[in-house]
């Protein structure tokens, strides 16, 4: 087939352009995620802080409300500042990723509040559900962005979710949750931040090379 030959209504150049556009959108979608690497790291640390407070400090009942409220406030303030600096979602993929994380946050908030108010917060199914919600957001994002690393992160959360059905004591649940938070939040967040730094340094390096 030649470049200009028409096949099923589109030329080869057309198809190449379409593929290039999709690849650009996927790359932009990934860079939206990497730009928010700090959010993953922050939430991972917040989980550690809250569990640490519950286990070792007084007034344990306030640990989760205080830590989560502080994290939400920080996310909103820093997120709004960054949005003002960098602009909003640029393309369809970025908006989809934003939708995934926003809705995941809303679902978890509703679920946790419902469970706490009805005194079901200690059930193994409750802890497993939270791990599954986070895994679902990672899994969906990974499939949209064709991102293997994030797919692995989703698998870590889901494995943790399944494990909480089998190891049901409070200590074991906390251990699983912290393990998933470390690998699926903090490490992934740091990896995303590293990618973002590399991406930001890219144009600068090429400029330096050009001058040299």
């Amino acid at each position: 087939m030649t470049n200009s030959e028409i096949d099923n209504g589109s030329t080869r150049d057309d198809l190449v352009q379409r593929v290039a556009l999709m690849e650009t959108m996927i790359a932009e979608g990934r860079s939206t995620t990497t730009r928010f690497g700090w959010v993953f790291v922050m939430w991972g640390l917040v989980y550690f802080a809250a569990v640490g407070w519950v286990l070792f400090l007084p007034l344990a009942i306030w640990a989760w409300p205080v830590c989560v409220s502080a994290a939400i406030a920080t996310s909103i303030i820093v997120g709004a500042r960054r949005k003002r600096m960098h602009g909003g979602s640029e393309n369809v993929r970025s908006r989809s990723i934003e939708a995934v994380w926003r809705m995941m946050g809303s679902a978890i908030c509703l679920y946790v509040v419902g469970a706490i108010l009805s005194h079901h917060a200690g059930d193994p199914a409750y802890v497993a559900a939270i791990l599954f919600f986070i895994g679902l957001a990672h899994g969906t994002s990974a499939l949209i962005l064709r991102w293997g690393v994030q797919g692995v992160v989703a698998a870590i959360w889901w494995t943790g979710g399944i494990a909480t059905f089998f190891f049901t004591s409070e200590r074991e649940s906390y251990g699983i949750f912290l393990g998933a938070s470390f690998f699926g939040m903090i490490l992934f967040g740091l990896y995303a931040m590293m990618l973002e730094r590399r991406r930001a340094a890219g144009p600068l390096q090429s400029q330096v090379q050009r001058h040299a």
Binding site: Y111, G114, Y126, A128, F132, L136
Partner: peptide, 23 residues
């Protein structure tokens, strides 16, 4: 996992399924 571990009777289990579909 819930069925295998005989935990499907928990209210939080059924609630989570609804929340997942809603999500």
């Amino acid at each position: 996992a819930g069925i295998y571990r005989h935990l499907a009777w928990q209210y939080s289990y059924i609630a989570a399924i609804f929340m997942l579909v809603g999500l």
